[in-house]
Write a protein that binds this DNA or RNA. Structure first.
Lengths: 248, 248
DNA sequence: TCAAAAGTGTTCCCTATACACCCATGT
DNA sequence: ACATGGGTGTATAGGGAACACTTTTGA
């Protein structure tokens, strides 16, 4: 294999030039505003070309020695301070001419984008405003036109989030240590859309599964009977691991 | 942004050098040997370092002007001649030091791998033996130690195939135009493992869904009552599109 | 004492499962 | 005739959807 930086393109065995890539990572970061029952996504106002002054998903280019997941976490840490989160790879877009930068001064270098989706706790997620870049939580239902193909990416991430929620216990990664069953229900309802299930049925189904333990502690929120705080019991959940399990 | 092939690494705004990538595509290609009821995967005997003389999943490096999916299809067309197939992106591996080539004469270039999984018709898939490279269908249950992290990749692809089968009509992409319900049942049984469902229940469930149309044509295979040939009716299936639909 | 929220129970219906049984063909 | 595989029907159990009802608090 020829060395790096030879002026000629690298050829494979059958003499076809290989493409050179920079790799970007874009994150679809969701959170749930339980007060207003809205699903939010984190957007960044771009300051550079291409798509300057356009909202976009937060992204970065992968650095030397950095894994894809490292890069995904780095984006998070540069934009928000969070404790609880769930992160998972989404999809990879890599067609030529996807990124306008390929046409400019790139000299044949292509841009490939690996996307991740994340779910974080809204209450604890503190946005890092650097005074230069615009950054904001947008209700998913009201996102404007985004840069690149980010609208599609968001749609794809949204679908994936909905599936994850139905089939795996992501919710507990993002809920406080102790929570009421109504907190849990609201989380499901705002992500999956209303009418996804009756509250009392949701309740009994989950309790019957047996991995939610009642702490006995009661909390009162305004009028009404106080609610029990529950805790997710990871040990009791273990047998369900990797099993198709439907929560709704 | 600095031009290509400058001797210095490319720096982003905050002076961190970006990684340069070559992008590989690896395919997990499945087929079903209905005669012997075995799920097969296509393996290639590597001829080059690293992992020379080791079985591996068929792969290639992405060329200039070629999309990821193009590359995935190119792998297929270089190894087998197929008509019916289903292809879908799987996962992207991109950690540093994943590929031993990065240590050799790569001078900092990293190798990222985007994997695809495919399902093809075994009967029509004609392997292209070039006399040099070993190529073979291996029963999934008997695959040996593979190059790179390909065993994990295969396991991941297998799980994804099973899910796909349960929730979407992939089977019909890979079945002949007309097929008996037993053909369909066997396909499901060999991929999902036996005891996934009773035959007669599988039968009535699918027929009730209403997107399989009886052609009236009968085929006799040895002893026993002749079976009806059915056809997948894409129009009748349309309403189920994107809906969670369980076949098993 | 009444509204609001938490929590329990009941009814109905649908469907997955496990079979038993009938049908049409080759030998 | 009978073995073989295709195809139909039925009885039962469990679970989801809808909703009525009870309990415990704040105002």
């Amino acid at each position: 294999m020829p060395g790096r930086n030879s002026k000629k393109p690298v050829y494979s065995l059958n003499q076809q030039p290989l493409a050179d890539f920079k790799v970007g990572v874009d994150n679809v970061i969701f959170s749930v505003d339980t007060a207003q029952n809205r699903l939010l996504v984190l957007l960044i106002m771009r300051q550079q070309e291409p798509f300057s002054n356009t909202w976009s998903l937060p992204g970065t280019l992968v650095r030397q020695g950095e894994s894809l997941e490292d890069a995904a976490y780095r984006i998070m840490s540069e934009k928000i301070r969070v404790k609880n989160l769930y992160l998972e790879q989404l999809y990879t877009f890599g067609g030529p001419n996807r990124d306008p930068r390929e046409d400019l001064n790139s000299f044949g270098v292509r841009y490939l984008s690996v996307s991740y989706f994340a779910l974080v706790r809204f209450e604890e997620a503190e946005l890092i405003a650097d005074g230069v870049t615009g950054i904001a939580w947008y209700p998913v239902k009201q996102v404007p036109q985004l840069a690149f193909d980010h609208n599609e990416l968001l749609a794809y991430g949204h679908r994936r989030l909905q599936n994850k929620l139905e089939y795996s216990p992501v919710a507990f990664d993002v809920l406080p240590e102790m929570f009421t069953l109504n907190d849990l229900y609201q989380l499901y309802a705002t992500i999956l859309g209303d009418n996804f299930s009756d509250y009392s049925n949701f309740r009994s189904r989950l309790l019957k599964l047996g991995f939610l333990s009642d702490t006995g502690i009661k909390v009162s929120r305004g009028a009404g009977r106080p609610a029990s705080l529950y805790r997710f019991d990871a040990e009791a959940f273990a047998p369900f691991k990797n099993k198709p399990l439907v929560f709704i």
